[in-house]
């Protein structure tokens, strides 16, 4: 009996010893795991790339360029004024005289533009018989010309003339260079086909030409 009791005591002690070792091992593993976690956490690095993308605003800007004005030299048109969207001139004509000038429309916007139509108005039906409007245009690759008396280019009537969509584009701003459409505009005092329509007194005749540009 005595032997058996001491044997049990040894067994119990042995078990207690093993349990203690397991706890130590478990604790060690926990510590090691935490340590490694902290260690790995320390070896984390975040690298950033930051950029600012600027998107330029859309601009629609087609206007007359006053610096491009050039008098053609037939009859004085120095009495003129030019703003962004309008130009006015004045000249005095005797029969056979022509007054004319060059003027560019420029495109400083972010869209291509095109001349879609123009309208000539002002002269009365009688005056239209002896006042001719002649226009030339060139955008660097295409040129078109029109005249109410058929002297140059396409013969047109007073009123609105549509321009083919494939012609006379005005390029958008490229770097510091604006797109450009050159015009020469002439007014001529011509012989009317019917002499009844010729003026027997001096006439002041207002001529307005409106050029319509659209976004391409």
């Amino acid at each position: 009996m005595k032997k058996s009791a001491s044997s049990n005591k040894r067994k119990r002690r042995s078990i207690q010893k093993r349990l203690g070792a397991q706890w130590v091992a478990l604790l060690g593993l926990v510590v090691a795991t935490l340590g490694m976690a902290v260690g790995f956490a320390a070896f984390t690095k975040t690298l950033n790339i930051s950029g600012t993308a600027s998107v330029e605003k859309a601009v629609w800007s087609v206007r007359w360029d006053p610096d491009s004005f050039y008098e053609e030299g037939y009859v004085d048109t120095t009495a003129h004024s030019i703003s962004d969207s309008s130009m006015t001139f004045q000249c005095t004509l005797s029969l056979g005289d022509v007054c004319g000038f060059d003027l560019d429309a420029i495109n400083e916007g972010t869209f291509d533009a095109k001349l879609t139509s123009f309208t000539i108005s002002g002269p009365t039906t009688a005056q239209q018989q002896y006042i001719a409007v002649r226009m030339f245009s060139y955008n660097g690759s295409s040129n078109l010309s029109w005249s109410t008396d058929g002297t140059y280019g396409t013969k047109i009537n007073y009123g609105t003339t549509n321009v083919s969509s494939s012609n006379l584009r005005v390029s958008k701003m490229s770097g510091s260079t604006a797109g450009r459409l050159w015009f020469e505009i002439d007014a001529a005092f011509i012989q009317a086909e019917n002499v009844n329509n010729m003026p027997t007194t001096n006439q002041n005749i207002s001529i307005t030409i409106s050029f319509k540009f659209d976004q391409v």
């Binding site: 001139f89 005095t92 004509l93 869209f111 012989q191 001096n202 050029f211 319509k212 540009f213």
Partner: peptide, 25 residues
Amino acid sequence: AYTKTLSVTGTTTTTAPKPLYFDSS
């Protein structure tokens, strides 16, 4: 909004010819 109209306005004063004249045309 992307449409623009540019205008040219001129006043031409025509001097009446004499009643009789050589017609250059």
